[in-house]
């Protein structure tokens, strides 16, 4: 009974860590440019599929991983440079459609070059699972949690310590003021997209050994990341992490205790319930409308 609960909790946290990374990617881009990037899920796909394909060419796993991360980062920067920057004055809905176009484009490329088959990656550790108190823990889950924590801490340090991080923050707070202070805001926005893509790709990469990957895995993962970001309140990094974990846990409990048919519906039921009571998410700022 308890071991079951422990098991669900652990897999929920694992899943939640992945969602948190995707949600952080959304948050980063949203803060920097107020765009909801519907292509975010494709970076996860590139992380997973890219590694699989590079391993297939004979590269050792670590080198393949780095290759996939670089590929995704470049894709993120290009997405900003070629699709978002030229349309920066467009309507919100128009920007949504542009990122959707980008996601279809990236998915199409993956399908064309890498095929439609499902793939898996070997687990990072030789020992596959540990048994603790009757519950089975996958060692890959520990890898996922560890890497997620490292990434979140690194991101927090990046924003509080580095000049580049501070420049991104300044740009997201007030673009015009940042430009006056000598920050090249378009370059900064490109960097934000790159980092966001890197986060997404890392999440996609570390989850592949336990979930499989294919050219179209990005759709659902991306949507759930969006939900996680919205639960916390768009723009809040703490909110993104909390939202991700909340989502992962409730999905795992639903699948375990209620019905796995409806586990994909859980995130959306949660977000609707939250928005019903808190129209700006859990940690969202309640900006009073100025008249």
């Amino acid at each position: 009974m308890f071991s079951e609960f422990f098991q669900f909790t652990f897999s929920g946290i694992t899943l939640g860590a992945i969602y948190a990374l995707v949600a952080l990617g959304f948050t980063l881009i949203y803060n920097a440019s107020h765009v909801i990037n519907f292509a975010q899920g494709e970076f996860l796909m590139i992380g997973g599929m890219g590694t699989v394909v590079l391993v297939g060419t004979g590269l050792p796993l670590p080198a393949a991983m780095v290759g996939a991360l670089v590929l995704a980062t470049v894709a993120g920067i290009l997405l900003h440079r070629l699709a978002i920057a030229p349309a920066r004055d467009a309507d919100v809905v128009t920007l949504i459609i542009i990122t959707i176009g980008a996601s279809i484009f990236l998915r199409g490329l993956a399908q064309f070059f890498w095929g439609k088959e499902y793939h898996a990656l070997p687990r990072f550790s030789a020992t596959e699972s540990l048994s603790i108190g009757g519950a089975t823990l996958l060692t890959q889950s520990l890898w996922i949690l560890g890497i997620a924590v490292v990434l979140v801490v690194a991101l927090a340090m990046f924003f509080s310590r580095s000049k580049l991080g501070k420049a991104i923050l300044a740009t997201s707070m007030n673009k015009d003021a940042a430009r006056l202070a000598g920050i090249k805001t378009q370059v900064i926005l490109g960097v934000a997209f790159g980092i966001s893509a890197l986060l997404g790709a890392a999440a996609g990469l570390i989850v592949t050994p336990i979930t499989f990957t294919a050219y179209d895995v990005g759709i659902m993962l991306g949507l759930k990341g969006f939900v996680a970001a919205a639960i916390g309140g768009l723009g809040s990094s703490t909110g993104a992490v909390v939202g991700g974990l909340l989502l992962g846990l409730s999905e795992a409990y639903t699948a375990g205790y209620i019905s796995s048919d409806y586990k994909d519906a859980v995130p959306f039921v949660i977000i609707l319930a939250i928005l019903f009571f808190l129209p700006n998410g859990l940690f969202g700022s309640r900006a009073a409308e100025r008249v």
């Binding site: 699709a83 030229p86 467009a90 542009i98 176009g101 998915r107 399908q111």
Partner: peptide, 14 residues
């Protein structure tokens, strides 16, 4: 097909 469709969509909206 998907690549071309995605590219058209982006181009028109940009």
């Amino acid at each position: 097909e998907m690549v071309v469709f995605g590219a058209i969509l982006m181009a028109v909206m940009i």
